[in-house]
Design a protein around this nucleic acid. Sequence first.
DNA 1: CGCAATCGGAACGAATCAGTCCGATTGGAG
DNA 2: CTCCAATCGGACTGATTCGTTCCGATTGCG
Lengths: 136, 136
Amino acid sequence: MRLSSLADYAVVMLSAAARHPAAARLSATTLAEETGVPLPTAQKLMGRLAAAGLLTSARGTGGGFVLAKGPAEISLADIVEAVEGPIALTSCVEHGRHDCTLEHACSVRPHWPAVNDALRGALGGVSLATLAGGHG
Amino acid sequence: MRLSSLADYAVVMLSAAARHPAAARLSATTLAEETGVPLPTAQKLMGRLAAAGLLTSARGTGGGFVLAKGPAEISLADIVEAVEGPIALTSCVEHGRHDCTLEHACSVRPHWPAVNDALRGALGGVSLATLAGGHG
DNA sequence: CGCAATCGGAACGAATCAGTCCGATTGGAG
DNA sequence: CTCCAATCGGACTGATTCGTTCCGATTGCG
């Protein structure tokens, strides 16, 4: 029940990005220096966040990343899903995945979706704007 | 943001145990057969749950495990913590742990405890009695 | 047209996790 | 009282995933 380091770093980096002017081009190098995250790791993360649609990427000299949406529109759940994949407590909540051999007689399976939604709601209620707010 | 397989199994096994009479002695072998969890893994889990205080263990012939509390008194959070350790999204929420080198200037750190509590609350709201209920 | 800067994907190493096995302890039978 | 069977408890091994690092592809500027 712990967040991966990558997801943790992603939150910190996006929070730092949210403090810059909305349309500013942030390079991975800049954010790495501001946050203290190792540069190669920062590059990997930014790429993954861009692939998820949270950032728009621009290549070449003077390129960089820009937040695709406003800080209030991005939630913790979005960031976590972008880095770690879909939020699914168990494998049986992802439709199409049936690794569990007990599913036909599993009494707890019907309850997982509700728990999963509750957890996702808790993370979805926290916006990037709140996190970037600092004291609080 | 996924539960470990061990924690998943633990929930299934405790749910199965909750369906038995309150004071019945359940051996790891019995529960393993009922749930389909591999026996050695089941043994490891039961031991860990007993160490956490959710079960009381009795050794020797005719021994086994008994729920230390009523099914309504055991929550998902308890089970997860017993198997995976304390629920801490990031390392900086565990007091005494200071692996993060940025903590002094981290703007998101003040917000983690609230998020952590929200998440723990979501898991704490689901009791073992609910999970054992079956259809729901 | 050449160069510098930046993003994107691929390869390596480490840590954790899942699974398995064997020893320690307890209760009952002879 | 002694021996045996049954069960819990901890230690070891293999595999998967995570985290990090490095190198190539692409773009804009001089």
